[in-house]
Amino acid sequence: MTLNYNPTKVLNFFVDTGVQSPEEKNGIPAIIYDVGVAYLIRRDTQLDFSVGTGAVGSTPPGTFLSVGIGMRF
Rank of each mutant, 00 (worst) to 15 (best):
V10E: 13
V19D: 10
V19W: 14
K25C: 04
I28T: 12
G57Y: 09
G57R: 03
R43S: 10
N6L: 07
R72H: 05
A30F: 04
V15S: 06
Q46T: 10
M71F: 08
D44M: 00
A38N: 13
S50T: 02
V67P: 02
G54F: 07
D16W: 03
S21E: 14
D44V: 05
G27L: 10
L65W: 09
Q46E: 15
L11I: 11
G36R: 03
L3D: 07
L11H: 01
G70I: 04
S50Y: 07
R42E: 15
I31R: 11
Y33G: 15
R43A: 12
Y39D: 02
N12Q: 12
T59Y: 06
L65T: 08
F14K: 01
V15T: 11
Q46L: 10
N26W: 02
G70D: 03
K25E: 12
F49I: 13
Y39I: 08
N12W: 04
A30V: 01
T63Q: 11
I32W: 01
L40V: 04
I32V: 12
P7R: 01
P60W: 05
K25S: 13
N4A: 11
I69F: 08
G70A: 05
K25D: 08
S21Y: 10
A38V: 07
L65G: 11
L3V: 14
R43K: 14
G36A: 08
R72A: 03
V67W: 04
T59M: 10
P29R: 04
K9D: 15
P61I: 06
I41G: 11
I32S: 06
G52P: 04
I28V: 13
G18H: 02
Y39G: 00
I41E: 08
A38S: 15
D48A: 05
I32Y: 02
D48R: 05
P7T: 06
D44L: 06
R43E: 15
F14A: 01
Q20C: 10
S58Q: 15
V10N: 13
E24L: 15
P7Q: 09
T53W: 07
V67C: 06
G70Y: 01
G57P: 12
R43L: 07
A38R: 12
G18T: 05
D44I: 03
G62Q: 13
V10M: 09
S21Q: 14
F49N: 01
V19R: 15
G62C: 05
L65N: 07
T59S: 14
L65I: 11
T59C: 09
P7Y: 03
Y39N: 01
I41D: 08
V10A: 12
F13M: 00
P60Y: 11
N4P: 00
D34F: 03
P60I: 09
V15K: 01
P7W: 04
F13D: 05
V37M: 09
L65P: 02
D44F: 04
P22L: 10
F13E: 04
T17D: 09
G62L: 11
N26E: 11
R42K: 15
E24M: 13
A38Y: 08
D34K: 13
T8N: 02
G36K: 03
G62N: 14
Q20A: 14
T59I: 01
R72I: 04
N12E: 12
G36I: 01
R72N: 10
Q46F: 07
A38G: 15
A30L: 05
G62F: 06
S66H: 07
I28W: 07
G52K: 00
L11Y: 06
Q20Y: 13
I28P: 01
G18P: 00
E24P: 01
N6G: 03
M1W: 07
P60F: 10
K25T: 10
V67Y: 05
